[in-house]
Write a protein that binds this DNA or RNA. Structure first.
Lengths: 225, 225
DNA sequence: TCGGGGATCCTTACTTTGTACGGTAGCTTC
DNA sequence: GAAGCTACCGTACAAAGTAAGGATCCCCGA
Protein backbone atom coordinates (compact mmCIF):
# COMPACT_ATOMS: atom_id res chain seq x y z
CA UNK A 1 0.00 0.00 0.00
CA UNK A 2 1.14 3.53 -0.67
CA UNK A 3 1.99 4.85 2.74
CA UNK A 4 2.44 8.54 3.10
CA UNK A 5 5.97 9.66 2.44
CA UNK A 6 6.42 9.31 -1.29
CA UNK A 7 5.09 12.27 -3.20
CA UNK A 8 2.26 12.30 -0.66
CA UNK A 9 1.90 15.44 1.42
CA UNK A 10 0.14 15.43 4.73
CA UNK A 11 -3.57 15.94 4.81
CA UNK A 12 -4.90 19.13 6.35
CA UNK A 13 -8.31 20.59 6.86
CA UNK A 14 -7.24 23.29 4.45
CA UNK A 15 -6.10 20.86 1.79
CA UNK A 16 -9.30 18.87 2.15
CA UNK A 17 -11.44 21.94 1.66
CA UNK A 18 -9.42 23.15 -1.31
CA UNK A 19 -9.71 19.76 -2.93
CA UNK A 20 -13.44 19.81 -2.30
CA UNK A 21 -13.70 23.22 -3.88
CA UNK A 22 -11.73 22.11 -6.91
CA UNK A 23 -13.88 19.04 -7.27
CA UNK A 24 -17.08 21.06 -7.03
CA UNK A 25 -15.75 23.60 -9.52
CA UNK A 26 -14.99 20.89 -12.05
CA UNK A 27 -17.74 18.33 -11.76
CA UNK A 28 -20.42 20.03 -9.74
CA UNK A 29 -21.43 19.77 -6.14
CA UNK A 30 -23.39 16.58 -6.72
CA UNK A 31 -20.25 14.66 -7.55
CA UNK A 32 -18.63 15.69 -4.30
CA UNK A 33 -18.84 12.61 -2.12
CA UNK A 34 -16.61 11.70 0.73
CA UNK A 35 -15.20 8.91 -1.37
CA UNK A 36 -14.56 11.00 -4.46
CA UNK A 37 -13.05 13.72 -2.32
CA UNK A 38 -10.75 11.24 -0.65
CA UNK A 39 -9.81 9.73 -4.00
CA UNK A 40 -8.88 13.13 -5.37
CA UNK A 41 -6.46 13.41 -2.46
CA UNK A 42 -5.08 9.92 -2.96
CA UNK A 43 -6.55 8.76 0.30
CA UNK A 44 -9.38 6.63 1.64
CA UNK A 45 -12.71 8.12 2.65
CA UNK A 46 -12.41 7.54 6.35
CA UNK A 47 -9.10 9.37 6.50
CA UNK A 48 -10.94 12.61 5.92
CA UNK A 49 -12.70 12.24 9.23
CA UNK A 50 -9.51 13.07 11.08
CA UNK A 51 -9.59 16.55 9.61
CA UNK A 52 -13.26 17.36 9.15
CA UNK A 53 -16.18 16.29 11.27
CA UNK A 54 -18.23 14.97 8.39
CA UNK A 55 -19.72 15.93 5.10
CA UNK A 56 -21.75 18.70 6.68
CA UNK A 57 -18.52 20.21 7.93
CA UNK A 58 -17.03 20.01 4.45
CA UNK A 59 -19.97 21.89 3.00
CA UNK A 60 -19.83 24.48 5.75
CA UNK A 61 -16.14 24.81 5.08
CA UNK A 62 -16.82 25.37 1.40
CA UNK A 63 -19.14 28.24 2.22
CA UNK A 64 -16.51 29.75 4.46
CA UNK A 65 -13.94 29.34 1.69
CA UNK A 66 -16.09 31.22 -0.79
CA UNK A 67 -16.97 33.92 1.67
CA UNK A 68 -13.30 34.40 2.50
CA UNK A 69 -12.59 34.77 -1.20
CA UNK A 70 -15.32 37.38 -1.38
CA UNK A 71 -14.00 39.29 1.62
CA UNK A 72 -10.58 39.33 0.02
CA UNK A 73 -11.95 40.55 -3.30
CA UNK A 74 -14.07 43.20 -1.60
CA UNK A 75 -11.07 44.44 0.33
CA UNK A 76 -9.10 44.83 -2.89
CA UNK A 77 -11.86 46.42 -4.92
CA UNK A 78 -11.87 50.18 -4.72
CA UNK A 79 -15.27 51.73 -4.65
CA UNK A 80 -16.02 55.20 -3.30
CA UNK A 81 -16.42 55.86 0.38
CA UNK A 82 -19.97 55.02 1.43
CA UNK A 83 -20.34 58.41 3.08
CA UNK A 84 -19.83 60.03 -0.30
CA UNK A 85 -21.70 57.61 -2.58
CA UNK A 86 -23.23 54.65 -0.85
CA UNK A 87 -24.98 53.44 -3.96
CA UNK A 88 -21.85 53.02 -6.00
CA UNK A 89 -20.03 51.57 -3.02
CA UNK A 90 -22.74 48.96 -2.63
CA UNK A 91 -22.86 48.30 -6.31
CA UNK A 92 -19.14 47.64 -6.44
CA UNK A 93 -19.31 45.42 -3.41
CA UNK A 94 -22.15 43.33 -4.74
CA UNK A 95 -20.71 42.98 -8.21
CA UNK A 96 -17.38 41.99 -6.71
CA UNK A 97 -19.09 39.29 -4.72
CA UNK A 98 -20.84 38.22 -7.88
CA UNK A 99 -17.58 37.67 -9.68
CA UNK A 100 -16.52 35.25 -7.01
CA UNK A 101 -19.86 33.48 -7.17
CA UNK A 102 -19.50 33.10 -10.92
CA UNK A 103 -16.22 31.31 -10.33
CA UNK A 104 -18.03 28.85 -8.07
CA UNK A 105 -21.40 28.20 -9.64
CA UNK A 106 -22.31 25.68 -6.96
CA UNK A 107 -21.98 28.22 -4.17
CA UNK A 108 -25.41 29.87 -4.48
CA UNK A 109 -27.21 26.56 -4.35
CA UNK A 110 -25.14 25.47 -1.41
CA UNK A 111 -25.82 28.67 0.51
CA UNK A 112 -29.51 28.47 -0.22
CA UNK A 113 -29.79 24.88 0.83
CA UNK A 114 -28.07 25.43 4.15
CA UNK A 115 -30.76 26.39 6.66
CA UNK A 116 -28.72 28.36 9.12
CA UNK A 117 -26.55 31.08 7.71
CA UNK A 118 -22.98 30.29 8.59
CA UNK A 119 -21.00 32.80 10.53
CA UNK A 120 -18.93 33.85 7.54
CA UNK A 121 -22.13 34.94 5.82
CA UNK A 122 -23.38 36.77 8.85
CA UNK A 123 -20.09 38.62 9.03
CA UNK A 124 -20.33 39.56 5.38
CA UNK A 125 -23.83 40.89 5.89
CA UNK A 126 -22.55 42.86 8.81
CA UNK A 127 -20.23 44.59 6.40
CA UNK A 128 -23.13 45.31 4.07
CA UNK A 129 -25.12 46.84 6.89
CA UNK A 130 -22.10 48.84 7.95
CA UNK A 131 -21.79 50.20 4.46
CA UNK A 132 -25.38 51.32 4.39
CA UNK A 133 -25.25 52.88 7.81
CA UNK A 134 -22.15 54.83 6.81
CA UNK A 135 -24.14 55.87 3.76
CA UNK A 136 -26.85 57.42 5.86
CA UNK A 137 -29.28 54.56 6.41
CA UNK A 138 -31.11 54.08 9.65
CA UNK A 139 -30.78 50.59 11.04
CA UNK A 140 -34.43 50.03 10.25
CA UNK A 141 -34.02 50.85 6.59
CA UNK A 142 -30.81 48.86 6.40
CA UNK A 143 -32.74 45.92 7.72
CA UNK A 144 -35.43 46.25 5.12
CA UNK A 145 -32.80 46.76 2.49
CA UNK A 146 -31.26 43.42 3.36
CA UNK A 147 -34.59 41.77 2.83
CA UNK A 148 -35.16 43.60 -0.42
CA UNK A 149 -31.76 42.67 -1.76
CA UNK A 150 -32.10 39.11 -0.64
CA UNK A 151 -29.41 36.92 -2.12
CA UNK A 152 -28.41 39.78 -4.38
CA UNK A 153 -26.48 41.17 -1.45
CA UNK A 154 -24.29 38.10 -1.83
CA UNK A 155 -23.92 38.56 -5.54
CA UNK A 156 -26.30 36.06 -6.99
CA UNK A 157 -29.91 35.86 -7.93
CA UNK A 158 -32.22 32.97 -7.85
CA UNK A 159 -32.72 31.85 -11.40
CA UNK A 160 -36.16 30.44 -11.79
CA UNK A 161 -35.48 29.27 -15.29
CA UNK A 162 -32.09 27.80 -15.44
CA UNK A 163 -31.77 27.58 -19.23
CA UNK A 164 -32.03 23.93 -20.05
CA UNK A 165 -28.65 23.14 -21.50
CA UNK A 166 -28.94 23.01 -25.23
CA UNK A 167 -32.34 24.33 -26.17
CA UNK A 168 -32.40 27.73 -24.45
CA UNK A 169 -36.02 28.56 -24.77
CA UNK A 170 -36.47 26.44 -27.82
CA UNK A 171 -38.60 24.22 -25.65
CA UNK A 172 -40.88 27.15 -25.08
CA UNK A 173 -41.74 27.25 -28.75
CA UNK A 174 -43.07 23.76 -28.53
CA UNK A 175 -45.73 24.93 -26.08
CA UNK A 176 -46.07 28.50 -27.29
CA UNK A 177 -49.83 28.19 -27.49
CA UNK A 178 -49.98 27.36 -23.81
CA UNK A 179 -47.73 30.20 -22.72
CA UNK A 180 -48.38 32.91 -25.29
CA UNK A 181 -47.13 35.78 -23.19
CA UNK A 182 -43.83 34.19 -22.38
CA UNK A 183 -43.38 33.10 -25.95
CA UNK A 184 -43.92 36.65 -27.15
CA UNK A 185 -41.58 37.94 -24.49
CA UNK A 186 -38.81 35.61 -25.53
CA UNK A 187 -39.33 36.53 -29.16
CA UNK A 188 -39.06 40.21 -28.28
CA UNK A 189 -35.97 39.65 -26.16
CA UNK A 190 -34.23 37.82 -28.95
CA UNK A 191 -35.15 40.59 -31.35
CA UNK A 192 -34.01 43.42 -29.11
CA UNK A 193 -30.63 42.07 -28.13
CA UNK A 194 -29.59 39.27 -30.40
CA UNK A 195 -26.11 38.81 -28.96
CA UNK A 196 -26.76 37.92 -25.36
CA UNK A 197 -24.18 35.96 -23.51
CA UNK A 198 -25.93 33.27 -21.62
CA UNK A 199 -28.78 31.95 -23.68
CA UNK A 200 -31.89 33.93 -24.33
CA UNK A 201 -31.18 36.60 -21.78
CA UNK A 202 -28.08 38.08 -20.34
CA UNK A 203 -27.84 37.26 -16.68
CA UNK A 204 -25.29 39.89 -15.89
CA UNK A 205 -27.31 42.68 -17.46
CA UNK A 206 -30.47 41.52 -15.75
CA UNK A 207 -28.71 41.20 -12.44
CA UNK A 208 -27.44 44.74 -12.66
CA UNK A 209 -30.79 46.06 -13.77
CA UNK A 210 -32.55 44.53 -10.80
CA UNK A 211 -29.80 45.59 -8.45
CA UNK A 212 -29.99 49.18 -9.60
CA UNK A 213 -33.76 49.15 -9.42
CA UNK A 214 -33.58 48.19 -5.79
CA UNK A 215 -30.70 50.49 -4.95
CA UNK A 216 -32.51 53.42 -6.57
CA UNK A 217 -35.65 52.61 -4.63
CA UNK A 218 -33.71 52.47 -1.40
CA UNK A 219 -31.91 55.68 -2.18
CA UNK A 220 -35.22 57.48 -2.49
CA UNK A 221 -36.24 56.26 0.94
CA UNK A 222 -32.93 57.01 2.60
CA UNK A 223 -33.06 60.10 4.77
CA UNK A 224 -36.79 60.70 4.48
CA UNK A 225 -38.32 58.23 6.87
CA UNK B 1 -50.72 -10.37 3.49
CA UNK B 2 -53.17 -7.53 3.22
CA UNK B 3 -54.28 -7.68 -0.35
CA UNK B 4 -56.17 -4.74 -1.68
CA UNK B 5 -59.88 -4.94 -1.05
CA UNK B 6 -60.30 -4.42 2.70
CA UNK B 7 -60.36 -0.78 3.69
CA UNK B 8 -57.66 -0.34 1.10
CA UNK B 9 -58.48 1.93 -1.80
CA UNK B 10 -56.64 1.69 -5.05
CA UNK B 11 -53.45 3.62 -5.42
CA UNK B 12 -53.39 6.46 -7.90
CA UNK B 13 -50.83 8.95 -8.98
CA UNK B 14 -53.06 11.56 -7.41
CA UNK B 15 -53.30 9.78 -4.09
CA UNK B 16 -49.56 9.22 -4.02
CA UNK B 17 -48.87 12.91 -4.58
CA UNK B 18 -51.40 14.01 -1.99
CA UNK B 19 -49.90 11.67 0.55
CA UNK B 20 -46.46 13.01 -0.30
CA UNK B 21 -47.71 16.55 0.18
CA UNK B 22 -49.26 15.69 3.52
CA UNK B 23 -46.08 14.01 4.64
CA UNK B 24 -43.97 16.97 3.64
CA UNK B 25 -46.36 19.38 5.34
CA UNK B 26 -46.13 17.45 8.59
CA UNK B 27 -42.57 16.26 8.91
CA UNK B 28 -40.67 18.22 6.31
CA UNK B 29 -39.41 17.33 2.90
CA UNK B 30 -36.37 15.54 4.28
CA UNK B 31 -38.54 12.86 5.83
CA UNK B 32 -40.20 12.11 2.53
CA UNK B 33 -38.61 8.88 1.37
CA UNK B 34 -40.12 6.35 -0.95
CA UNK B 35 -40.48 3.99 1.99
CA UNK B 36 -42.09 6.50 4.33
CA UNK B 37 -44.40 7.59 1.55
CA UNK B 38 -45.41 4.03 0.83
CA UNK B 39 -45.90 3.33 4.53
CA UNK B 40 -48.21 6.33 4.87
CA UNK B 41 -50.33 4.75 2.16
CA UNK B 42 -50.24 1.29 3.71
CA UNK B 43 -48.21 -0.08 0.88
CA UNK B 44 -44.68 -1.20 0.08
CA UNK B 45 -42.15 1.11 -1.50
CA UNK B 46 -41.95 -0.64 -4.83
CA UNK B 47 -45.68 -0.36 -5.34
CA UNK B 48 -45.32 3.36 -5.86
CA UNK B 49 -43.32 2.78 -9.00
CA UNK B 50 -46.45 1.66 -10.83
CA UNK B 51 -47.86 5.14 -10.46
CA UNK B 52 -44.86 7.45 -10.47
CA UNK B 53 -41.62 7.05 -12.35
CA UNK B 54 -39.41 7.59 -9.32
CA UNK B 55 -38.67 10.00 -6.56
CA UNK B 56 -37.84 12.75 -9.01
CA UNK B 57 -41.31 12.38 -10.45
CA UNK B 58 -42.82 12.63 -6.99
CA UNK B 59 -40.97 15.88 -6.35
CA UNK B 60 -41.97 17.25 -9.73
CA UNK B 61 -45.52 16.26 -8.96
CA UNK B 62 -45.37 18.11 -5.67
CA UNK B 63 -44.34 21.28 -7.44
CA UNK B 64 -47.21 20.85 -9.86
CA UNK B 65 -49.58 20.30 -6.94
CA UNK B 66 -48.53 23.53 -5.26
CA UNK B 67 -48.65 25.48 -8.49
CA UNK B 68 -52.14 24.17 -9.17
CA UNK B 69 -53.18 25.32 -5.72
CA UNK B 70 -51.76 28.74 -6.50
CA UNK B 71 -53.53 28.95 -9.84
CA UNK B 72 -56.78 28.09 -8.12
CA UNK B 73 -56.25 30.69 -5.40
CA UNK B 74 -55.27 33.33 -7.95
CA UNK B 75 -58.37 32.61 -9.97
CA UNK B 76 -60.55 33.13 -6.91
CA UNK B 77 -58.80 36.23 -5.63
CA UNK B 78 -60.28 39.42 -6.96
CA UNK B 79 -57.81 42.12 -7.71
CA UNK B 80 -58.42 45.01 -10.08
CA UNK B 81 -58.10 44.65 -13.83
CA UNK B 82 -54.45 45.02 -14.78
CA UNK B 83 -55.36 47.61 -17.40
CA UNK B 84 -56.71 49.82 -14.64
CA UNK B 85 -54.16 49.17 -11.87
CA UNK B 86 -51.45 46.69 -12.70
CA UNK B 87 -49.56 47.27 -9.50
CA UNK B 88 -52.39 46.28 -7.23
CA UNK B 89 -53.28 43.39 -9.51
CA UNK B 90 -49.73 42.09 -9.28
CA UNK B 91 -49.60 42.69 -5.57
CA UNK B 92 -52.76 40.67 -5.01
CA UNK B 93 -51.50 37.90 -7.24
CA UNK B 94 -48.15 37.62 -5.53
CA UNK B 95 -49.55 37.78 -2.02
CA UNK B 96 -52.10 35.14 -2.93
CA UNK B 97 -49.31 32.89 -4.13
CA UNK B 98 -47.49 33.62 -0.91
CA UNK B 99 -50.39 32.37 1.17
CA UNK B 100 -50.19 29.05 -0.57
CA UNK B 101 -46.44 28.91 -0.10
CA UNK B 102 -46.86 29.55 3.60
CA UNK B 103 -49.10 26.50 3.78
CA UNK B 104 -46.31 24.43 2.24
CA UNK B 105 -43.08 25.69 3.72
CA UNK B 106 -41.06 23.06 1.88
CA UNK B 107 -42.19 24.31 -1.53
CA UNK B 108 -39.74 27.20 -1.93
CA UNK B 109 -36.76 25.03 -1.17
CA UNK B 110 -38.01 22.38 -3.51
CA UNK B 111 -38.56 24.83 -6.34
CA UNK B 112 -35.15 26.37 -5.83
CA UNK B 113 -33.38 23.06 -5.75
CA UNK B 114 -34.93 21.83 -8.98
CA UNK B 115 -32.73 23.00 -11.82
CA UNK B 116 -35.21 23.15 -14.64
CA UNK B 117 -38.38 25.06 -13.98
CA UNK B 118 -41.28 22.68 -14.35
CA UNK B 119 -43.97 23.48 -16.82
CA UNK B 120 -46.46 24.46 -14.14
CA UNK B 121 -44.10 27.20 -13.04
CA UNK B 122 -43.50 28.36 -16.57
CA UNK B 123 -47.24 28.58 -17.06
CA UNK B 124 -47.62 30.60 -13.88
CA UNK B 125 -44.93 33.01 -15.01
CA UNK B 126 -46.71 33.30 -18.30
CA UNK B 127 -49.68 34.61 -16.36
CA UNK B 128 -47.48 37.09 -14.56
CA UNK B 129 -46.09 38.37 -17.84
CA UNK B 130 -49.59 38.55 -19.25
CA UNK B 131 -50.66 40.68 -16.32
CA UNK B 132 -47.81 43.09 -16.82
CA UNK B 133 -48.34 43.38 -20.55
CA UNK B 134 -52.01 44.12 -19.98
CA UNK B 135 -50.80 46.75 -17.52
CA UNK B 136 -48.82 48.54 -20.19
CA UNK B 137 -45.42 46.86 -19.99
CA UNK B 138 -43.33 46.20 -23.04
CA UNK B 139 -42.17 42.63 -23.29
CA UNK B 140 -38.66 43.83 -22.61
CA UNK B 141 -39.58 45.48 -19.35
CA UNK B 142 -41.73 42.54 -18.35
CA UNK B 143 -38.71 40.37 -18.85
CA UNK B 144 -36.55 42.50 -16.65
CA UNK B 145 -39.33 42.69 -14.12
CA UNK B 146 -39.34 38.92 -13.85
CA UNK B 147 -35.67 38.99 -13.06
CA UNK B 148 -36.09 41.77 -10.55
CA UNK B 149 -38.91 40.01 -8.78
CA UNK B 150 -37.12 36.71 -8.80
CA UNK B 151 -38.77 34.21 -6.54
CA UNK B 152 -40.98 36.96 -5.19
CA UNK B 153 -43.11 36.51 -8.28
CA UNK B 154 -43.91 33.09 -6.86
CA UNK B 155 -44.67 34.44 -3.43
CA UNK B 156 -41.58 33.69 -1.46
CA UNK B 157 -38.28 35.24 -0.73
CA UNK B 158 -35.02 33.63 -0.08
CA UNK B 159 -34.31 33.91 3.60
CA UNK B 160 -30.62 34.19 4.15
CA UNK B 161 -31.01 33.96 7.88
CA UNK B 162 -33.50 31.35 8.70
CA UNK B 163 -33.95 32.22 12.38
CA UNK B 164 -32.24 29.40 14.19
CA UNK B 165 -35.11 27.78 16.01
CA UNK B 166 -35.13 28.91 19.59
CA UNK B 167 -32.64 31.71 19.91
CA UNK B 168 -33.81 34.16 17.23
CA UNK B 169 -30.83 36.42 17.09
CA UNK B 170 -29.82 35.69 20.61
CA UNK B 171 -26.84 33.95 19.11
CA UNK B 172 -25.89 37.23 17.53
CA UNK B 173 -25.38 38.80 20.92
CA UNK B 174 -22.74 36.22 21.66
CA UNK B 175 -20.64 37.56 18.80
CA UNK B 176 -21.84 41.15 18.88
CA UNK B 177 -18.29 42.46 18.90
CA UNK B 178 -17.55 40.67 15.65
CA UNK B 179 -20.67 41.90 13.88
CA UNK B 180 -21.35 45.28 15.48
CA UNK B 181 -23.50 46.64 12.71
CA UNK B 182 -25.83 43.67 12.61
CA UNK B 183 -26.03 43.64 16.37
CA UNK B 184 -27.04 47.29 16.41
CA UNK B 185 -29.52 46.67 13.64
CA UNK B 186 -31.17 43.86 15.52
CA UNK B 187 -31.31 45.95 18.66
CA UNK B 188 -32.97 48.75 16.74
CA UNK B 189 -35.43 46.40 15.09
CA UNK B 190 -36.48 44.95 18.39
CA UNK B 191 -36.90 48.43 19.77
CA UNK B 192 -38.94 49.74 16.85
CA UNK B 193 -41.37 46.90 16.50
CA UNK B 194 -41.39 44.72 19.56
CA UNK B 195 -44.27 42.50 18.49
CA UNK B 196 -43.07 40.90 15.31
CA UNK B 197 -44.52 37.64 14.29
CA UNK B 198 -41.75 35.39 13.16
CA UNK B 199 -38.74 35.99 15.34
CA UNK B 200 -36.74 39.14 15.30
CA UNK B 201 -38.28 40.48 12.14
CA UNK B 202 -41.62 40.14 10.51
CA UNK B 203 -41.29 38.24 7.29
CA UNK B 204 -44.64 39.27 5.92
CA UNK B 205 -44.00 42.98 6.45
CA UNK B 206 -40.53 42.70 4.97
CA UNK B 207 -41.81 40.74 2.04
CA UNK B 208 -44.41 43.36 1.26
CA UNK B 209 -41.94 46.17 1.70
CA UNK B 210 -39.53 44.67 -0.78
CA UNK B 211 -42.31 43.76 -3.16
CA UNK B 212 -43.65 47.30 -3.15
CA UNK B 213 -40.19 48.72 -3.56
CA UNK B 214 -39.73 46.73 -6.73
CA UNK B 215 -43.24 47.33 -8.04
CA UNK B 216 -42.85 51.05 -7.51
CA UNK B 217 -39.53 51.02 -9.29
CA UNK B 218 -41.03 49.16 -12.21
CA UNK B 219 -44.01 51.46 -12.33
CA UNK B 220 -41.71 54.42 -12.78
CA UNK B 221 -40.08 52.75 -15.75
CA UNK B 222 -43.29 51.57 -17.35
CA UNK B 223 -44.25 53.61 -20.38
CA UNK B 224 -41.11 55.72 -20.52
CA UNK B 225 -38.61 53.47 -22.13
C1' DT C 1 19.53 4.13 20.89
C1' DC C 2 15.17 2.69 21.75
C1' DG C 3 10.52 2.08 23.22
C1' DG C 4 5.99 4.22 24.17
C1' DG C 5 2.27 7.19 22.71
C1' DG C 6 -0.37 9.73 19.80
C1' DA C 7 -1.55 11.16 15.29
C1' DT C 8 -2.64 9.56 10.79
C1' DC C 9 -4.49 6.53 7.71
C1' DC C 10 -6.80 2.01 6.35
C1' DT C 11 -10.17 -1.91 6.51
C1' DT C 12 -14.41 -3.54 7.31
C1' DA C 13 -18.94 -3.17 7.81
C1' DC C 14 -23.46 -1.13 9.01
C1' DT C 15 -27.35 2.11 7.77
C1' DT C 16 -30.30 4.67 4.86
C1' DT C 17 -32.23 5.51 0.49
C1' DG C 18 -33.40 4.82 -4.31
C1' DT C 19 -34.62 1.39 -7.44
C1' DA C 20 -33.99 -2.98 -10.67
C1' DC C 21 -35.89 -7.57 -11.13
C1' DG C 22 -38.85 -11.06 -10.86
C1' DG C 23 -42.84 -13.27 -8.48
C1' DT C 24 -47.88 -13.48 -7.19
C1' DA C 25 -52.75 -12.40 -6.77
C1' DG C 26 -56.88 -10.81 -8.68
C1' DC C 27 -59.59 -8.71 -12.38
C1' DT C 28 -60.78 -8.52 -17.36
C1' DT C 29 -61.69 -10.38 -21.71
C1' DC C 30 -62.58 -13.75 -25.05
C1' DG D 1 -62.89 -21.07 -17.75
C1' DA D 2 -58.18 -19.90 -19.48
C1' DA D 3 -54.99 -16.13 -20.85
C1' DG D 4 -53.10 -12.08 -19.85
C1' DC D 5 -52.73 -7.62 -17.87
C1' DT D 6 -52.24 -4.78 -13.88
C1' DA D 7 -51.29 -3.76 -9.15
C1' DC D 8 -48.69 -4.97 -5.59
C1' DC D 9 -44.90 -7.46 -2.91
C1' DG D 10 -40.18 -9.47 -1.57
C1' DT D 11 -35.58 -9.56 -2.36
C1' DA D 12 -31.58 -7.53 -3.36
C1' DC D 13 -28.13 -4.37 -5.12
C1' DA D 14 -25.62 0.17 -5.46
C1' DA D 15 -24.27 4.57 -3.73
C1' DA D 16 -23.19 7.32 0.06
C1' DG D 17 -22.29 8.67 4.98
C1' DT D 18 -19.96 7.09 8.81
C1' DA D 19 -18.99 4.12 13.24
C1' DA D 20 -15.35 1.03 15.19
C1' DG D 21 -11.15 -0.67 15.55
C1' DG D 22 -6.55 -2.06 13.54
C1' DA D 23 -2.04 -0.77 11.44
C1' DT D 24 1.71 2.31 10.58
C1' DC D 25 4.59 6.17 11.19
C1' DC D 26 6.63 10.11 13.61
C1' DC D 27 8.12 12.36 17.65
C1' DC D 28 9.78 12.53 22.07
C1' DG D 29 11.81 11.45 26.34
C1' DA D 30 14.73 8.11 28.85
Amino acid sequence: MARRGEAQVRLTRGRVLEAACALADEDGLASLTMRSLAASLGVEAMSLYHHVAGKQAVLDGLVDLVMAEIERAVAEADGPEPERDWKTAMRVRVLTAREVMLRHPWAPGLIESRGEASFSIVRYLDGVVGLMVRGGFSYGLAHRALHALESRALGFSQEMFRPGGDDDGGSLEAVADQVPNLAAMVAAAVHDQPDTRLGWCDDQAEFEFALDLILDGLDRLRGRE
